[in-house]
Simulated assay, not measured.
Amino acid sequence: MRQAGWIAGATAAVLVAAGAITYAVAESDAPGTKAPSTDSADAGFARDMAVHHQQAVEMSYIVRDRTDDEEVRRLAYDVAQTQANQRGMLLGWLDLWELPKVSSDAPMTWMGMGDMASGKDGALMPGMATDSELKKLATLSGKQAEVFYLQLMTDHHQGGIHMAKGCVEKCAVGVEKRLAQGMVNAQQSEIDLMADMLKERGARARS
């Protein structure tokens, strides 16, 4: 496979290194720094991105069982492992900060988008697949499943990048801002890769 293997290896290496240090330093960037409040951008991003990531993991496990194509299965594995790891970091920070993992606020309120974030049919935030789309993915197989997964994941990454850029701008905890910037970079690389994979299958992204 072309660059997907390199991306997977590089991502795994970064995550191993990040996982070793991130949990320990997420409480603050300097001695005496107070933990974020429950209505902060830091907490809001951690909660919302954990939910966003969980759906990416779910979609990746669905397509893994719907195709024998090694390239798509490897990408799905990389996405699932990366986002499950990051989700663990985000939820771990909320534990360290002694903040709830669920908020009564609408998703993306911390970005000033609480009244616009939730869509219809179970799509809680921009880029997230609807319940109907998830059910459809689970009924497809082979090339059709590959194309639909790549299209859904492209949309999902675009929504994730938008949210991660919001954290880069608004979050106060340095290590979380750096993780968010890493998400922007990695997910844009995967969007580019998925565009090539879609083209190889005679398709394109939906937006």
Results as ranks from 00 to 15, higher is better:
residue 46 A to E: 08
residue 47 R to F: 00
residue 47 R to A: 00
residue 47 R to H: 00
residue 48 D to C: 04
residue 48 D to P: 04
residue 48 D to Q: 07
residue 48 D to W: 02
residue 48 D to L: 05
residue 48 D to A: 00
residue 49 M to W: 05
residue 49 M to Y: 08
residue 49 M to N: 09
residue 49 M to Q: 12
residue 49 M to A: 07
residue 50 A to E: 09
residue 50 A to D: 04
residue 50 A to K: 03
residue 51 V to W: 08
residue 51 V to P: 01
residue 52 H to W: 02
residue 52 H to P: 02
residue 53 H to E: 07
residue 53 H to G: 08
residue 53 H to D: 09
residue 53 H to P: 07
residue 54 Q to M: 13
residue 54 Q to T: 13
residue 55 Q to P: 01
residue 56 A to P: 05
residue 57 V to R: 04
residue 57 V to Y: 04
residue 57 V to I: 12
residue 57 V to F: 06
residue 57 V to T: 07
residue 57 V to S: 05
residue 57 V to H: 05
residue 57 V to C: 10
residue 57 V to N: 05
residue 58 E to Y: 10
residue 61 Y to D: 13
residue 61 Y to L: 10
residue 61 Y to A: 07
residue 62 I to G: 03
residue 62 I to F: 10
residue 63 V to E: 01
residue 63 V to T: 00
residue 63 V to Y: 06
residue 63 V to D: 01
residue 64 R to I: 01
residue 64 R to Q: 11
residue 64 R to F: 10
residue 65 D to C: 07
residue 65 D to V: 13
residue 66 R to M: 00
residue 66 R to E: 09
residue 67 T to G: 10
residue 67 T to M: 11
residue 67 T to L: 03
residue 68 D to A: 14
residue 68 D to Q: 15
residue 69 D to R: 00
residue 69 D to E: 11
residue 69 D to P: 05
residue 70 E to F: 12
residue 70 E to M: 09
residue 70 E to P: 12
residue 71 E to G: 09
residue 71 E to C: 04
residue 72 V to E: 01
residue 72 V to K: 01
residue 72 V to T: 12
residue 73 R to W: 04
residue 74 R to A: 15
residue 74 R to Y: 14
residue 74 R to H: 06
residue 74 R to P: 02
residue 74 R to T: 14
residue 75 L to M: 07
residue 76 A to P: 08
residue 77 Y to G: 09
residue 77 Y to A: 15
residue 78 D to F: 06
residue 78 D to P: 04
residue 78 D to N: 08
residue 79 V to E: 04
residue 79 V to I: 12
residue 80 A to G: 03
residue 80 A to I: 00
residue 81 Q to F: 13
residue 81 Q to Y: 14
residue 81 Q to R: 13
residue 82 T to S: 14
residue 82 T to F: 00
residue 82 T to P: 04
residue 82 T to H: 10
residue 83 Q to H: 08
residue 83 Q to F: 02
residue 83 Q to I: 04
residue 83 Q to D: 11
residue 84 A to G: 14
residue 84 A to Y: 09
residue 85 N to S: 15
residue 85 N to K: 10
residue 85 N to M: 12
residue 87 R to G: 13
residue 87 R to F: 05
residue 88 G to R: 02
residue 88 G to W: 00
residue 89 M to H: 09
residue 89 M to A: 11
residue 90 L to C: 13
residue 90 L to S: 07
residue 90 L to A: 02
residue 90 L to D: 06
residue 91 L to Q: 12
residue 92 G to I: 11
residue 92 G to S: 12
residue 93 W to I: 05
residue 93 W to V: 07
residue 94 L to A: 08
residue 94 L to C: 07
residue 96 L to K: 14
residue 96 L to R: 14
residue 97 W to I: 03
residue 97 W to D: 06
residue 98 E to K: 10
residue 98 E to S: 13
residue 98 E to Y: 03
residue 98 E to R: 06
residue 99 L to V: 10
residue 99 L to H: 00
residue 99 L to F: 02
residue 99 L to T: 00
residue 100 P to K: 03
residue 100 P to H: 01
residue 101 K to E: 15
residue 101 K to S: 11
residue 102 V to K: 10
residue 103 S to H: 06
residue 104 S to E: 15
residue 105 D to G: 08
residue 105 D to W: 12
residue 105 D to P: 03
residue 105 D to R: 12
residue 106 A to R: 08
residue 106 A to M: 05
residue 106 A to Y: 02
residue 107 P to F: 12
residue 108 M to L: 15
residue 108 M to E: 12
residue 108 M to D: 14
residue 109 T to A: 15
residue 109 T to W: 01
residue 110 W to N: 12
residue 113 M to S: 14
residue 113 M to H: 15
